[in-house]
Design a binder for these strands. Structure first.
Lengths: 109, 109
DNA sequence: AAATATAATAGTAATATTGCAATATTACGA
DNA sequence: TCGTAATATTGCAATATTACTATTATATTT
């Protein structure tokens, strides 16, 4: 009890839910927006300053975003440079949009 | 500690996160899909049978979906008939899609 | 090599979510 | 009105999430 019963749902629904969950926290939304605004990648410390949460908390959110492959990182001196994986972002856009469009079509049958 | 710090984020980000959260559970995704497929509304009990979770659990998920205005209900005998609010669904679609499009544009600068 | 800076990890407390059984509420039919 | 069916609410246990401090690992200066 307590944990989501993934086994009773279709894989497609589990995946859509997993993707949506990444965007279901305002800090992650802000982080994604911020990284997307930075020319040529951005540094974790800058995100910490920008968002106003402790560094480990930001690190944790970054790792959630990474889990669906939405972040690329590369070493840059002693810092890490994060950037949005455009292909993955586009895949997320299509996944969500297709869901809404299909649901819309069905709803107005 | 423990709860999301809504006050440090922009209202826009809080709202997007709130909407995304509705779609961040496979049962809710399945429920929304199922309702959208039913010609002229569908009955709660049918959802319970379809999804395979206990009735109170379904009821709880329905109330989460209602919170963002995505469900219309109407009495139908002793049952309730649920249907998707098309306008709201479309608004959700645009909200998410605009976010992705904006983020995409920024990311590929 | 020692000090410093950056980010990840471990550990933990507070809170939220998920799911169920039990119960309450509401509406209908006999 | 009594019983029944459909849905909501309550209360609770299990688990997940959020956020923090302290620590660690790694790379860069000095």
């Amino acid at each position: 009890m307590g944990s989501t019963k993934l086994n009773i749902h279709e894989a497609e629904n589990n995946y859509l839910a997993k993707v949506a969950k990444v965007f279901s926290h305002p800090a992650r939304v802000a982080i994604i927006k911020y990284i997307s605004c930075c020319e040529s990648g951005c540094i974790c410390n800058d995100i910490v300053k920008e968002i106003g949460l402790a560094q480990p908390t930001i690190s944790q959110h970054l790792s959630e975003i990474k889990k669906i492959g939405l972040l690329d990182q590369s070493a840059s001196g002693k810092s890490l440079s994060y950037s949005i994986n455009s292909e993955k972002l586009n895949a997320c856009r299509r996944l969500m949009n297709d869901f809404f469009v299909k649901t819309q079509v069905n709803a107005s049958k």
